[in-house]
Amino acid sequence: MSNEEQERRKINRGFAEMLKNGVIMDVTTADQAKIAEDAGACAVMALEMVPSDIRKSHRVARMSDPAVIEQIMATVSIPVMAKVRIGHFVEARILEALGVDFVDESEVLSPADEEFHVDKRQFTVPFVCGCRNLGEALRRIDEGAAMIRTKGEAGTGNVVEAVRHMRAVNREIAALQEMDEAELNRTAEAYRVPAALVAETRELGRLPVVNFAAGGIATPADAAMMMALGCDGIFVGSGIFKSEKPAVTAAAIVEAVIHFQDPKKLAEISRGLGAPMIGLEIESLETKMAARGV
């Protein structure tokens, strides 16, 4: 890795550190972005449709219109992220040219490449990618992701998949501690990543980059539970603007992340928020987004 690449990695991983203990919210308009910023979002994800609407549309979902993204960038002072299809390196170049602060290579959009993810090391802009387990997480980090999030199951308002994925990552990192060098090397081979990256993860006892929870978080209690499971922060997609009172729900989720260890405060925070987004059972889904891009 060149000095320049190493420096950019440090700057981009460092930026992800600054987002920690915060909530990143999906927004589709400048007005929503303002609501999210005022409620205490540490960043917004600019997109044309939230995942629950993408799910209903049954259409190919692509990068958002740059005009939508630019309008949101012009409205808020907090960082703005945007999504590209898995493997779509040209959409990623477009977002980089727009100056977005983070690119989410996301299974919520329709995959563009079933074989390769974007080679993220070639970019200046940082990337966040989804994972269901440690192998996926380390492959994305090896490709250059500066941040990881659980995939969960986006647009469902059902936290069960996010929990499954966070527990899988935790369990697989714990399992590394028991391994001798030969087992570690075999694991690296199975994960298709360099052994040094697996060894680094074992040493740290956690992922070497910031890890957020995403995909189905709909209530302050969901957010606090994911923090208690050890994630560094939260993405909320449809959970805010598909709820009855978006501004109130947004602020409550931010407060729940701050006070996730304090059940009395969580009780106060959860009181009288109106109806959360309607949740879907995972068995009822036609499309499992989490299975995209392994």
């Binding site: 600054m18 987002l19 203990n21 205490g40 540490c42 907090i78 407060e255």
Partner: peptide, 10 residues
């Protein structure tokens, strides 16, 4: 380090 708007609000 972090987001000053978030810290200021809370």
């Amino acid at each position: 380090g972090g987001e000053s708007t978030v810290m200021a609000r809370y």
